[in-house]
Write a protein that binds this DNA or RNA. Structure first.
Lengths: 144, 144
DNA sequence: GTTACATGTAACTATATTAATTACAATCAA
DNA sequence: TTGATTGTAATTAATATAGTTACATGTAAC
């Protein structure tokens, strides 16, 4: 199974809001770039708002960044859009048999290891900001 | 989303086969420890067999390890049971708008970053062997 | 060769998530 | 008041998980 593309879409949205900072980033505008429909964008924007990454108001067109580009990491977005349950990237079978030596110890043995693996992944996301994405897109575009 | 517990069950199975190496690890025996049913165990064992981590034969009761404990990493198990598509822990929206600056660059910008995050996670799994799990269970049990 | 038992698989179920979509109430600017 | 936008609920189709039943296939032992 894969982590929902809500995360990638969230990054796309935030980056595009910045590129379009002199314009109005309505859900319809954003949806056209992502290539999906506005309702889905609004759902994701709602999550980003809850995490205080964007400002957006009912009745008023357009979303704006609530923080500086350099202060929003991919990890912030990842957590905002709720694609992985807290500390549960890996699910573990629930009721191993306590009468068995392995059954009664396996969870406390592997859960910390799986947690370290998850944190290693999240640490990478935490080291990249939307500003990095922004700059990289500028670079990539230059080369075209 | 979470990664399927097939992975944790796979680790459980391999560890238990080792603890039970003087006995017969039938799918029914393993299922009792995992606390699920034998058919599910056989399905997972089948994947472990395909990855050459266990030996098992139709008609003959019991599965055995095909490699030394210290030569089986959690990453081997993770790949064997196919819980995450190759290099696609993160899914990315498929058809961003090429007419938009962000749309036509976002994929090639974020995919390498997401790949680095995934590899960081997998590297942790690659650093732990079933032997480590085995030893840790021995330790945990001593403390009880 | 028949019996007993185990593995390998297919099929089916219930549940959950994703992504797409429609619909509409609530909100605000002009 | 009008027109446009956000917020949100509901629906759908597709896919994955985990559990389960059923049975053909394969092997050993009698």
């Amino acid at each position: 199974m894969s982590i929902s593309s809500r995360f990638a879409v969230g990054v796309h949205i935030l980056t595009l809001i910045e590129f379009n900072k002199d314009g109005v980033s309505s859900s319809e505008y954003l949806a056209e770039s992502v290539n999906t429909n506005p309702a889905l964008i609004r759902k994701i924007i709602g999550m980003l708002k809850k995490a205080e990454l964007v400002d957006v108001h009912p009745g008023i067109a357009g979303a704006n960044l609530a923080k500086k580009l350099s202060e929003i990491t991919l990890l912030d977005v990842y957590k905002a859009v709720n694609v992985v349950p807290e500390n549960e990237l890996f699910s573990v079978h629930e009721n191993p048999n306590p009468k068995c030596l392995v059954g009664r110890n396996i969870q406390e043995t592997i859960i910390p290891i799986l947690s370290i693996a998850q944190i290693a992944m999240e640490k990478v996301l935490g080291s990249v900001t939307i500003e990095d994405i922004f700059e990289d897109i500028v670079e990539k575009e230059k080369q075209k």
